[in-house]
Write a protein that binds this DNA or RNA. Sequence first.
DNA 1: GGCCGAATTGACTTTTACGTAAATGCCGTG
DNA 2: CACGGCATTTACGTAAAAGTCAATTCGGCC
Lengths: 128, 128
Amino acid sequence: MREYYSITELTREFDISTRTLRFYEDEGLIQPVRRGRTRLFRPSDRHLVKQIMRGKRLGFSINEIREIIQMYREPPGEVGQLKLMIKRIEEKREDLRQKRRDLEETLAELDQAEESCVERLVELGVNT
Amino acid sequence: MREYYSITELTREFDISTRTLRFYEDEGLIQPVRRGRTRLFRPSDRHLVKQIMRGKRLGFSINEIREIIQMYREPPGEVGQLKLMIKRIEEKREDLRQKRRDLEETLAELDQAEESCVERLVELGVNT
DNA sequence: GGCCGAATTGACTTTTACGTAAATGCCGTG
DNA sequence: CACGGCATTTACGTAAAAGTCAATTCGGCC
């Protein structure tokens, strides 16, 4: 495991701009350490970026991603907080399950659409 | 199957504003018929709205949703167009499969997070 | 015919998630 | 040490997706 990644290494790996990484830092999603003014990204920062990109692909907003990331952190020490967190996690999971239903339905409809296209090609006598 | 839905019926059903429905009409996603100036939404319009909301929950942009909706329509008559459409459909499916992987990974991490919370509760001697 | 609530239109505003440009800093190399 | 190249900061810009507001206008009912 490498100790540090430069900002451009991460921009290349995740195909995002330096502006985006700085933006995520401003938003408090990542906190790379500094050598002088230069940002040094640790493996944990890199993993966070991976989680952010996943959240983005799933259509979560920055705020939602922030919430999710907080759920991955060390659980709090106080009972009330813990119970609240468990509730939040359950809500997010329900959200994701809804997305999964949406996803399966959309996939099914796309399957249908493709089938129609293929049929139409067969009608037109195209050798598939 | 009802013949027509009013704009407010749909806003209630899908929990969106009239402004949003008009916006989707401006964007060409739906084309409700008119009686005078009043919009009448057919079941097919309603189904389109359902598909739009699904796309939104999955994080697709209006343009992407527009593309997906076009895939559900009658397949084109020309071979080149048909092959292009099949290619597009396959691309969207790949996109959705990526989303599914993201989704499963996120769900798994949330499961882990919840487990940590529960363990912590047990440590604190809370009767679950 | 008059009235009221629902619907429409158009213009303006807001939020999110960065993009872009300008000015400047730091650092290894020839 | 001058230079190229990557980094940083600050500030303003912008596209997408609606929200909000004001002015108007139907359409149904008494």
